[in-house]
């Protein structure tokens, strides 16, 4: 059995998960266990979506053809994986840490954000946006400048006594080759996320392994015209509207929790952070400028 830490959870897994850091905490029982077994289709599911089934009791089954089928129990305490390819293939972990982990989060009352998170001072700062908006690339730019990261792509938040905390995920960035080349990171010897994709798993040494209060969420948007570039703090309903788009697989959350509980969670998070829209022309050439801009904005409070 392997023991790992993942977003504040103690994970016991028969499947080695080399992306995660080993559990260094207490000897308590695991919060989440991962094992390998058959995962047959659910009978009479309550909800049937193309890749996802939800049973009346809340059990979820997610299947990616030719990769694996996954089952999550109603409390989000156990994941069963039926691999359709060698169990150590990175592909299996891609969906495990994506949709499947999002199910676990929703089931445990944690709100997963589609965001990469870095540490600035003693606070966490999140970069959210759609696939391709540049979340991981921006986190990599911060890494290059000596900052550490808490999470990449999926960030787990939890509100404790009115403070929004981000839990450290794992010390790895998922980057496309062009971003790695542009930032002069070496791809040689790195694992590809999927054998057919030019997307790499880059281990990171500068990892902030403790939960930190979340100061700001930056929503990354692409400007097609320099006149439309802006950095602006969002307030009230605008901030809430953006936060709804930042929930990782929000449709999934909606199907598992219903809109009321889901938006109440999002509302608690948005109430405790600064929301900033950052619209810019995409270019790696301006990495320095953008890192400086955000770091200044954060230290100025």
């Amino acid at each position: 059995m392997n023991y790992y830490a993942l977003c504040g959870l103690k994970v016991a897994s028969v499947l080695p998960l080399p992306d995660l850091v080993s559990w260094a905490g207490d000897g308590r029982q695991a919060d989440l266990s991962i094992r390998l077994d058959e995962v047959p289709e659910l009978e009479n599911p309550h909800t049937s979506r193309p890749l996802l089934q939800i049973a009346d009791d809340g059990t979820c089954r997610f299947e990616m053809k030719a990769v694996a089928a996954y089952r999550v129990d109603p409390e989000g305490r156990e994941i069963v994986i039926a691999p359709h390819m060698p169990a150590d293939a990175p592909d299996i972990r891609v969906f495990l840490f994506g949709t499947v982990f999002a199910i676990v989060c929703f089931r445990r009352g944690l709100l997963p954000l589609h965001a990469s998170v870095v540490r600035i001072g003693d606070k966490a700062v999140a970069f959210s946006g759609v696939s391709g908006a540049g979340k991981s690339t921006l986190a990599a730019m911060f890494l290059k400048r000596g900052y550490s990261i808490l999470a990449d792509d999926v960030a787990v938040t939890e509100v404790r006594d009115g403070t929004v905390m981000v839990q450290p995920a794992f010390p790895r960035l998922k980057l496309w080759r062009d971003a790695m080349d542009g930032l002069a990171f070496e791809t040689e010897g790195l694992e590809r996320a999927r054998a057919q994709l030019e997307k790499f798993h880059m281990p990171v040494e500068a990892f902030a392994g403790e939960p930190l209060p979340l100061a700001s969420v930056y929503y990354l948007e692409e400007a097609v015209d320099p006149r439309h570039e802006e950095m602006r703090t969002l307030l009230g309903i605008d901030a809430f509207r953006y936060m709804k788009t930042a929930v990782y697989r929000s449709k999934l959350g909606y199907n598992l929790l219903g809109s009321g509980p889901l938006f109440a969670m999002a509302g608690r998070v948005v109430g405790g952070v600064r929301s900033v829209i950052l619209r810019r022309i995409r270019t790696l050439a301006r990495a320095e400028e953008i890192v400086d801009l955000i770091a200044r904005h954060e230290t100025a409070g």
Partner: peptide
Amino acid sequence: SRFFFEDVLDIESSDLTEDE
């Protein structure tokens, strides 16, 4: 639309191959 695809399928398209 990439976002239509991702929402209906509960999945990140950037994790998928062109064939998938």
